[in-house]
């Protein structure tokens, strides 16, 4: 089976008087429906790698294939369109829009994509909220929810356009144990029940243990010797 995401000798150097190498020579393949955890010490470049894999940042060397397509030559608008259609993000902070209700936050990416009409989008958003036990919170504003609930809303939002891959940056970094376990369970179920691929950067050992595979990043490179 072809990997959903493949990186070949991927590298990212920040230009400047003293160029800084964030990531170098990353060879990585992620299969459909896999739950991959990226680990490593602080400042090792794991978040930078996630941004590259999530098309938020453009590599300075190497190739990246998403769903079989080489995205190396894509312009900013093309990258944005690809992110909208194929990727979903969950960050350490929920980043929900404070002025919008939970439902509207979830509807935002669907409205932008415009693949579903308003009624169908609303139904889908409500179904997704239902699945994650947030149905009764649909009309609330983010500040009325707990941290765990907000993070779950952020996951629903990431799922809104039925992405191929969910990229998560420390999704449990800000949550208590109970909420962390909940988020971890949801991401796990996504991969095993819906076939969505999840790539998560994490410090959380329990969380990483729930993943199908773990890789370690040290000094911007994959370290095969890495052990938790």
């Amino acid at each position: 089976m072809t990997p959903i995401l493949a990186a070949e000798r991927l590298g990212r150097v920040l230009a400047g008087e003293v160029p800084v190498t964030l990531v170098r020579d990353i060879d990585l393949e992620v299969s459909r429906g896999e739950f991959l955890a990226i680990m490593g010490p602080s400042g090792s470049g794991k978040s930078s790698l996630l941004y590259l894999l999530g098309l938020l940042d453009t590599p300075t060397s190497g190739r990246l294939l998403l769903d079989g397509q080489d995205i190396s030559g894509y312009g900013e608008d093309q990258l944005a369109a690809t992110r909208l259609r194929k990727l979903g993000f969950v960050f350490q902070f929920h980043f929900l829009l404070a002025e919008f209700t939970v439902l509207d936050n979830v509807l935002l990416p669907m409205r932008r994509l415009g693949a579903l009409d308003e009624n169908a989008a609303r139904r889908r958003a409500e179904d997704l909220l239902e699945q994650l036990g947030l149905r009764e919170h649909a009309r609330k504003h983010p500040h009325q929810l707990s941290g765990g609930q907000r993070q779950r809303v952020a996951i629903v939002r990431a799922l809104a356009n039925d992405p191929l891959i969910i990229l998560a940056d420390e999704p449990t970094g800000n949550l208590d144990t109970h909420a962390s376990a909940n988020v971890q369970q949801i991401l796990h179920d996504l991969t095993h029940q819906l076939g969505t691929t999840v790539i998560a950067v994490t410090h959380d050992v329990t969380f990483a243990n729930a993943a199908d595979r773990r890789i370690g990043i040290v000094d911007g490179q994959i370290d095969p010797e890495w052990r938790m």
Binding site: G54, E76, A80, R83, L84, F91, F95, R112
Partner: peptide
Amino acid sequence: IHDIAILKSMGFHARD
């Protein structure tokens, strides 16, 4: 700026 960043990461274009 954080909302802008999240909208852009979500796939909103600069012109949006």
